[in-house]
Design a protein around this nucleic acid. Structure first.
Length: 330
DNA sequence: AACGCGGGGCG
DNA sequence: CGCCCAGCGTT
């Protein structure tokens, strides 16, 4: 969960997740929908799918116990250098390094590593330094201390060098280059995408909306509304058709939603439709609002569904459940 | 060696 | 509004 996501954001998800899946066995046994349901809103949903896949492999290939061997760990889905090192150093007390965003900042300053982040030579330099430093009988504590140092003292914009326990060893401080490190390359501007989405309800049943589980890269494994790139009524109609639905589209869009991702800026037109009743399949079906929390759903989908339901008092914990369900599905 | 992949909180 | 976060897998 902590891959590219702040610890403070993760904590409530983590608590809920471990309450529901306290062991490798329970997680391995669970359907993917259950796993994604608890991940909903956290983002980077591939992490959840890889975790699930990895845990199943731990069961099938290693008898349900995380392998202590480093290369075996690295071979598991979802486990890269960082996670392998975290497990190795913290769980197995092995002298394995950890390099995360915090550690990169600390090391780049400590040793003046001034090549750009993300470049392989730069990244290798970090791992080499970290590997060299993690010596002793408490590698887990050392690694966590490095991350903590980066999180609390050696911060991106306002480092507190006067309080830094390793200030005397810091080459960047000595050379007054702390503020120029690490070197971050300019990131590409997010691509703007115009999208139409349709909240489709069956005739005589306004309590459920048609969702389909997509497997493509964006929001893979999650349940989404019929959606496609485009704008206007014709494209909304096309989205409905592509979803395999027949029915009447609303005369106008009912709203617009802007959704910001790190690499995309999505402008979404929200339409509604009343469609002929239809049986669902494994990957597409009507979902009642109450059943929504049992499935993986992105924030975007939550926003889109909420567009048809102006918040009465509180957004989620309504007293009148039925009215809320009805409203939230358009 | 680059790039795609969410979402939120803070300056 | 921009930045960056206890990264990983794919191309």
């Amino acid at each position: 969960m902590c891959q590219q996501t702040r610890v403070d954001t993760v904590i409530p998800y983590y608590e809920r997740f471990l309450k529901r899946f306290p062991t490798i066995a329970t997680l391995a046994k669970a359907p993917e929908d259950d796993v994604l349901a608890l991940w909903s809103g956290l983002g980077y949903y591939r992490r959840a799918r890889l975790l699930h896949k990895g845990v199943r492999e731990v069961v099938s290939a290693y008898g349900g116990a995380m392998p202590s061997d480093a290369s075996a760990r690295l071979g598991l889905p979802g486990i890269g250098r960082y996670t392998a090192g975290a497990i190795g150093s913290i769980a197995f007390h092995k002298e394995e390094p950890i390099v995360d965003g915090n550690v990169k900042r600390v090391l780049s300053r400590l040793f003046v590593i001034d090549t750009p982040l993300g470049r392989s030579d730069t990244e290798n330099a970090f791992w080499e330094k970290a590997q060299h430093l993690v010596r002793g009988d408490r590698p887990g504590d050392f690694n966590q201390a490095m991350m903590e140092l980066g999180a609390t003292i050696c911060t991106p914009t306002s480092p507190r060098c006067d309080e830094c326990p390793v200030r005397r060893h810091c080459r960047a401080k000595k050379e007054a280059r702390v503020y120029e490190l690490p070197v971050v390359l300019a990131k590409k501007a997010p691509k703007i995408v115009q999208v139409v989405a349709v909240i489709a309800r069956a005739v005589g049943d306004d309590d459920a909306a048609w969702l389909q589980r997509c497997d493509q890269a964006l929001f893979g494994g999650l349940w989404n509304l019929p959606m496609m790139e485009g704008e206007g009524r014709d494209d909304a109609q096309e989205a409905l058709r592509k979803a395999g639905l027949r029915g009447k589209l609303s005369s106008r869009k009912i709203g617009d939603v802007v959704h910001i991702l790190s690499h995309r800026r999505m402008h979404v037109e929200v339409w509604t439709a009343v469609v002929t009743k239809q049986r669902g399949t494994m990957t597409r079906r009507y979902v009642r609002h109450k059943a929504l929390k049992a499935l993986g759903v992105s924030r975007l989908t939550q926003k889109l569904l909420a567009t048809g339901a102006p918040p009465s008092e509180e957004s989620c914990s309504c007293r009148s459940r039925r009215a809320h369900d009805r409203a939230a599905c358009g």
